[in-house]
Design a protein around this nucleic acid. Structure first.
Lengths: 150, 150
DNA sequence: TACAATACCATGCTATACCATATTATACCA
DNA sequence: TGGTATAATATGGTATAGCATGGTATTGTA
């Protein structure tokens, strides 16, 4: 199973290209598509990123709804219509489309943030603020990780 | 497995021709028919599109209704009788028949909208409204992807 | 024979595949 | 433990192939 850890900051070139951290790429090596799938986060000014296999998994779960039901339609629209398929080039880079870059206010550098099964891409300064905020939330609410169900 | 992702806007020429996005075509490469199947959506001013292999799959699902029940008959009529088989030309284009274009109020551009196992074709401005609507529905009803059953 | 549908061809553009360099991290050896 | 060699990674630039698009020819049909 793919597991994305740690944070890496890489450079965005004039064409919107950026190297995906090598450790993230190796997590996706066995995927059916050499690249990532990205879409705008619903809760942050950032991009949510998955491997293609996870998107297929999501698609299968949606099959539990009736094919033309409203819920199925709304979810599929939000998730799939607004996502972008970003293939690796020969050197492990992706091209971040202008639309996604401007949504995140990205200029010359971006941060890849491991989140376990998925990862996010942030404008580095926005990420700093978010991290400080997340630390506060964890401290104030004494958030903990649930015990294993095994 | 074929998965349709993202949204692409392509030009409709004077003969009603339009390029199917290359990524969608490659999802259909292994299909038994080189082209798509399209029919008018029941819930939107848009076209629902599948590969031929998925139409066969839908047909199997309909078998779960009683063979001569009203529901089965209605659905089968709407989906199969009113659907059009649109073959690719040598350059990966389809011809959208006048009847389907006018149903969607299409003029010079159309949007191909990935929905996972299917895709839709929209008049671009109508799509914008639909996207906003889908986002609202998901937020208001707290729709989420069902958890895995594993 | 006239019309419409479809197959075929031609072109500009853009995405991406390729190559070349710089930089960093790692491994090896003293 | 420290320094150096080496390999992997990140980055920058260029060439090319594929794609979207426009047009023409040919076939079938009424």
């Amino acid at each position: 199973m793919a597991l994305f850890l740690s944070t890496y900051i890489n450079k965005l070139d004039s064409k919107g290209r950026v190297s995906v951290p090598a450790t993230f790429r190796s997590s996706l090596a066995s995927s059916s598509f050499q690249g990532i799938v990205a879409f705008k986060s619903k809760s942050h000014i950032a991009l949510e990123c998955f491997g293609m296999d996870d998107m297929i998994e999501i698609s299968k779960r949606l099959d539990h709804f009736d094919l033309f039901s409203e819920a199925q339609d709304d979810l599929a629209t939000v998730i799939f219509a607004e996502s972008k398929q970003l293939p690796f080039d020969g050197d492990g880079r992706i091209v971040l489309p202008e639309e996604l870059r401007s949504f995140c206010n990205m200029t010359d550098k971006v941060a890849f943030v491991g989140m376990g099964q998925k990862f996010q891409i942030w404008e580095p300064e926005a990420l700093e603020k978010r991290l400080a905020n997340a630390r506060d939330n964890v401290r104030e609410q004494n958030l903990t990780i649930p015990a294993s169900k095994d």
